[in-house]
C-alpha cells in the first residue's frame, strides 16, 4: 500500500505502524457517571467493518506524524489521508 502523506507525498505503508479505529481519538469523559463502562467500550469494542474504515497510522519511520486514513478493508484502497491533529481539532479538541 502507498499512503499519500498530506505533507510528504506518497510513502510506503511499511514506514508506518498501525494503531486501529480512528474513534480512539474520541476519549470518553472520565468524570461521567458511566465512565467505567464507557472506557471498557472505548478500549475493547470495535465496529470492525468490512468496507470503508477510518483508522490511525503513525509515520514512525518518517516525520512521526499521526494520520487518519480512510481505507477500504475489503480492497485496501485508500480514499483519504488527513493529519490526525487536524481531525482532532475539527472535533473541538486541543483548542
Amino acid at each position: 500500500m502507498i499512503i499519500e502523506h498530506p505533507l510528504l507525498g506518497p510513502r510506503d505503508a511499511a514506514e508506518f505502524t498501525y494503531l486501529g479505529d480512528a474513534r480512539l481519538i474520541d476519549r470518553p469523559d472520565w468524570q461521567s457517571e458511566t465512565a467505567a463502562h464507557d472506557f471498557f467500550e472505548y478500549g475493547y469494542l470495535r465496529d470492525n467493518p468490512a468496507g470503508w474504515h477510518q483508522e490511525l497510522w503513525f509515520h514512525e519511520a518518517g516525520d512521526r506524524s499521526w494520520l487518519v486514513i480512510t481505507r477500504n478493508t475489503v480492497t485496501h484502497e485508500i480514499s483519504k489521508v488527513e493529519l490526525a491533529r487536524d481531525v482532532a481539532r475539527s472535533r473541538g479538541r486541543s483548542k
Binding site: G20, D21, E41, Y44, L45, R46, D47, N48, P49, A50, T73
Partner: peptide, 16 residues
C-alpha cells in the same frame, strides 16, 4: 465475526 455479529447489532472485542 465482526461482519456477522453486526447484523445482531453487536460490537465485539475483535478486529479482523
Amino acid at each position: 465475526s465482526g461482519r456477522l455479529m453486526a447484523k445482531a447489532e453487536m460490537r465485539l472485542p475483535i478486529e479482523s
